[in-house]
Write a protein that binds this DNA or RNA. Structure first.
Lengths: 334, 334
DNA sequence: TACTTTGTCTGCAACGATGTATTTCACCAG
DNA sequence: CTGGTGAAATACATCGTTGCAGACAAAGTA
């Protein structure tokens, strides 16, 4: 059997509660007593049973993180940052993969996953604001960067519109006029895709360049999606001199397909992405993209969530933060 | 306050214990009673408090996973697979990033992290077998794929030697004779680096090609490490017609640097890696590499660990499994 | 009829910590 | 010497489950 507080208490000749007090840094303990307890802890190799503490205190010191899939580089990198941010504040992170399915997202918002965590960081992909509000329990919840915008929810936002506009403006400045967009529907206006598309449109309008819906291609936000979309564009004989992948995976897939097809990048066709994943820097040619402020998002989201958990949840003023983005100009679109 | 078993019991007009029995599928319960309890659960929206269950039962239904960093694609992809494998068996995974530091690895083996999990999947990078055995508690532990080999520990192994030999043989078959190796020390014989290096040497020997220590470059197993290593090779005027990165990140970094320097790949210099991360398929040119059986490793490791957790731990026969590997020939080295 | 067996359900204690309320004690002012 | 004060330590209940032992019918056996 494991060593318990009781064992320590006996060894140190104090009450169980005093041991608890020492461990929790209770203010009023005589240094001598404290030392005696500490020695006993050392000697017996005692370690607090976190499960018991959780049951009693109602806190687990764990944050939940719901994302589509860790095998997607952007999420993996974000998760890594979030775990570090949480760790430095004494929290652990329990990751749940939604696989981009509504059922899984809903399950993560409610249910037992919640009971294991003190609060949730959630990157919604299929659920809308109302569904989230309906499904979510009472525990703190912070939405991340992507899909949903709603005045009733705490969130840390990516500047989807502005950053996409910046990318587009950069392509336009390079003399490109026929910029294909990968990963959106022509009519889309909400979610990451919609917001980024609207940024693209706004930049075109600013530059007096006409918007051509034929250059907007719907596909999965993965490398193979990007590759397939570009293949279809080329096969259809569409005329374009640049490709804007709404995330880096799309852009990298497109880049690959273009090169395979013998197109020169950026001479014939420029390519730009969105996310600035590590891979972008080492692509050949290196990928021009926009860094949405991943580290800042992780940091602020964790901070905000923990504030909600530990602070008076009574202060119900919704907080919505925006991360600063930064254009990263590289070889694929100079 | 949350709904407890007691509330359900009252609502259903049975004892608390009966509710517990229903939830745990105890055999002898009259269907009518069972239904009444189930209805009450539904009506009240009861959900088991996992913390309380853990405290009482001593099981958390969580597996720990210790790896260097989720931002490294291979680990992220492996983690994703592991989480899915665990999920399908009713377990969750709690990830801990060691940051490749001995202190963190040790901390994860002992301490509170252990108490949150029923067993541990561990990818050791700095700790040796003896240190692991000394540090580890009594809970089940399965080592993954990489570093350590020891008859006293359960593990699922990558065929480092054989797979590296296969890659080297492939390069040799393509007519390459001066194959640089990135990510190892000349003298190294243990760990992933040592084992892969020895596979490389063996393949050379088999082909009657002389081993040149000057072609073995030590560096960090990251993209920038690979890029830097190749840069140093080129600057030193070394003569080589192929590069074998001991993992894909190294190879991709090297590939990038070679192309930046105007080398033609694979015509002048072939490049091959190890791991077959998703990114390898979409590099330009696509990366020849070896798939170490990631999905199988995840599956078997989880299976083995859960077997240890749930089975009689009394059966102390150490199990060491090997995953099948597969060479993936692509454009960077045909 | 009396006694076991089987099925169904219940009560109590316990997992290992923390919150609240309370007690003990030392110290100092009046 | 008493009373008041605050520091230091303690007692007890409690968080929400599950393990264990037992109660109590109904059914089977002798």
């Amino acid at each position: 059997m494991a060593v318990t507080m009781n064992d320590v208490a006996k060894a140190a000749g104090v009450s169980l509660k005093t041991v608890s007090n020492v461990i929790n840094n209770y203010e009023f303990i005589r240094p001598a007593t404290k030392q005696r307890v500490l020695d006993a802890i050392d000697e017996l190799g005692y370690e607090t049973n976190l499960t018991a503490r959780s049951l009693r205190s109602g806190k687990t010191k764990m944050l939940g993180l719901v994302l589509a899939d860790l095998s997607i580089p952007y999420y993996a990198e974000l998760a890594s940052d979030i775990m570090k941010a949480a760790w430095s504040r004494g929290y652990r992170v329990l990751v749940e993969q939604s696989g981009n399915e509504a059922e899984h997202e809903k399950a993560a918002l409610q249910g037992q996953f919640r009971s294991l965590t003190d609060g949730l960081l959630f990157i919604p992909l299929t659920l809308g604001a109302q569904q989230i509000i309906d499904a979510a329990g009472k525990k703190p919840l912070v939405l991340l960067g992507e899909f949903v915008q709603d005045p009733r929810l705490d969130m840390v936002l990516i500047q989807n519109h502005e950053a996409a506009a910046a990318v587009t403006t950069h392509l336009l400045a390079g003399g490109r006029r026929r910029i294909a967009v990968l990963g959106a529907d022509d009519g889309e206006t909400t979610g990451s895709a919609g917001l980024r598309l609207s940024g693209y449109k706004a930049a075109l309008a600013d530059a007096g360049v006409e918007y051509d819906p034929a250059l907007v291609v719907r596909c999965e936000w993965r490398r193979d999606g990007g590759a397939g979309a570009v293949a279809r564009l080329l096969d259809s004989g569409a005329d374009f001199d640049a490709v804007f992948g709404l995330n880096d995976a799309l852009a990298l897939g497109a880049l690959h397909e273009l090169l395979v097809r013998g197109k020169r990048v950026p001479e014939e066709i420029a390519v730009a992405g969105f996310d600035d994943i590590e891979e972008a820097r080492f692509a050949s040619p290196s990928l021009t993209t926009v860094a949405p402020g991943r580290a800042e998002i992780a940091e602020r989201a964790v901070e905000l969530l923990i504030e909600r958990i530990e602070g008076n949840m009574a202060a119900p003023e919704v907080r919505q933060l925006q991360a600063a983005f930064e254009l990263r100009v590289r070889k694929s679109a100079t």
